[in-house]
Write a protein that binds this DNA or RNA. Sequence first.
RNA 1: GGCGCAGUAGCCAAGUGGCCUAAGGCGACGGAUUGCAAAUCCGUUAUUCCCCGGUUCGAAUCCGGGCUGCGCCUCCA
Length: 524
Amino acid sequence: MSLRVYNTLTREKEPFKTIEPGKVTMYLCGPTVYKPAHIGHMVGPVIFDTVKRYLTYSGYDVTFVINITDVDDKLINKAKELGVEVKALAEQMTEDYFDNLNLMGVNTIDHFPYATDYINDMQEMIQKLIDRGHAYPLNGDVYFDVTADADYGKLSGRSVDAMMAGTRVEANDAKKNPADFALWKGSKEGEPAWDSPWGPGRPGWHIECSVMSCKLLGPSIDIHGGGLDLMFPHHENELAQSESASGETFVRYWMHNGLMQSGKNTGKVGGGHDRHGDSPAPDSTAPDSTDAQIANKLAGSAGAESVKTAVFAHHHPEVVRFFLLSTHYRSPIDFSLENIAKTEKSLDGFYRLFDSFERITGVDPYTLNIPNVREETVSLSSLDDELAANFADLRNRFLESMDDDFNTGGAVGILFDMRRAINGFIQQQKLEESCSPEQSEQLTAMVTLLRELAQLVGVFQRPVEKSSGADDEFVNGLMDLVLDIRQQARTDKNWTVADKIRDALKELNVEVEDGKEGVRWSRG
RNA sequence: GGCGCAGUAGCCAAGUGGCCUAAGGCGACGGAUUGCAAAUCCGUUAUUCCCCGGUUCGAAUCCGGGCUGCGCCUCCA
C-alpha cells in the first residue's frame, strides 16, 4: 500500500504524488510570538514533525519550514502593554517557542524564517499583485481584490456572496468589497514601520506566508499545514495571493489539524476572546476543573504561563507528544490532566521494558543503532519463523496505518502489541534469569524494531529520567543498606519487617519490587 | 444566519461498504507467577458503533432527516 493524504481542498484522501519525484516541500504556519507557547501551539509542530519523519523514512528528501511571525497587531499591543520593544518581546517569545519544540522532540525543521526578514520580498509580491490587477492601494493601505480572483473561497468552501451576507464582516466603506483584505497596512505613530511605495507601514497577516513559502520552497509546494482555524481566512487568503501572483498552483496538499480543546465545554485551548454575546456567558458557578484552569492559564490573556511551567513541570514532554499522536491529527483532541495521566501510565510499560532490556543485555536501548530507512529495516533473521512472521506483520500494520493519511493513533496501538510480544518473549525464555548470546541477539532485534517504528512518531528518542536507581551516592548507599536489611528479614521469613520497610518506602514514594534476579527500586 | 467538523465499551481511542461475531490504552474482574505484593504474561470486559428512516445481497462505514457537542465566519496553531 502506498501513502494517501487527506487534502482539505478536495475533501478526499488522495494518493501522495510530489511535484518533484523524491522531494517534498512542506510549510507550516507558525506562531505569532507575543506570549509564551501554550499546549495548542505544540499540536501542529508535533504532527508535521511526525509527517516529515515518516516521509523521510519512506525515502523522500523533505524540506520543512515553519515561519515566525514577528510583526503583528497583537505583538505590537502586547509590547506596548508590557512597555518593552516589539523586537525584544518577539525574540524572547521565539526562544520560549523553540525551547518547547525541543522538549517535545520536534527537531526536523529546516528553516524558521522571520517575517521581518522578508519585508522587501513582500513588497515585491504586493506590487506584482497590483500590476496584475489583483490589488489596489487605498490611503496608505493595499488591499487584495477578492472579486478579481475567480475561484476565491475554494479552500474553505465559501463564496464571496455568502461572506457579504455574513453580518460580521466589518464594513470599511472605502474598500471595494468588505471581504477584501489588507496586504499592506499603513502605520500609525509609534508602530513599527517600513518604507514602501504606498507609504510607511507593515505587511498584512497573510502575505508573509505566501512570500516566505515561495522564497524558500518555490511557487508550488507539496504540503501546506496548519490548524483548522487557519483555513479561513488565513489559508484562503494566502492561496488567493500566491496563485494570483504566480499563476501557478500554490499547494498540492492542504493538511489541517484538529484543534486542542480542554474539558467538555470550554472550547479550544488558546481561544482567548469572549463570544460576542449571542451565546450565554460561561456558567461561572460550574465547577472549575483543574484542566480548565490550566487551559485558561495556557490561553493566557491574564497569566502568561508557558507549556513548560504549566505542564512539563509535572509530566515528561514525551508523554504530551505521545498523547497528541494517539489520536488522529484531523480530530479535535481533548486536553485534560486525566488524559495526560493515563498516557503517562501507558508509557511506563515501555520504560520498564527498556530497563528490563538493559538489565538482560547490558546494553542501553537508547544507544542501539536504529535503521531510519524503510528498505533497510532491522533484520529479523535471528528469530524463529513464527516470531519473525509476527514481528514482520506488526511492522506492516504499523506502516499501513501511517500510509493511511498518517494514522498515528492506529500505528501507536501496534507499538503496544509489540511491547506485549517482547515482554512475552522475555517471560517465556526466562531471560531475566539467564540469557544466551543468541537470545540476546533476538531480543535486541525486537527492541530495535520497536525503536525503529517509535522514531517515526518521535518517541523513545532519548532516555527519560532514570526510572530506577538514583545517581546520588548517598541515597544509593542508604538504599543499599535498607534493602539489605529487608533482604535479611525476607531470608528469615520475617514478613512483618520486610513488608513494613516496603510500605514505609512507598510512603516516601519509593517503589520496591522483588524480582527473580533481585530487588529493584525506583522513585515515583 | 452562513460554512465546516465530530458523536464507537466506565473513560480515551483505531476502524469509514463484506477480513468488524469492532484494534490498542487506562480502569475493572478472573488465572499463571509471587511469602504477600509490584511488574509481566494469559483470559473476561461493545452481538454492537447518538436516534429514526433509506440505498445495498451486505453499513459503525453511503444517503436523507433529527438530536447533541465543537470550530470558523473577529490578524487564534
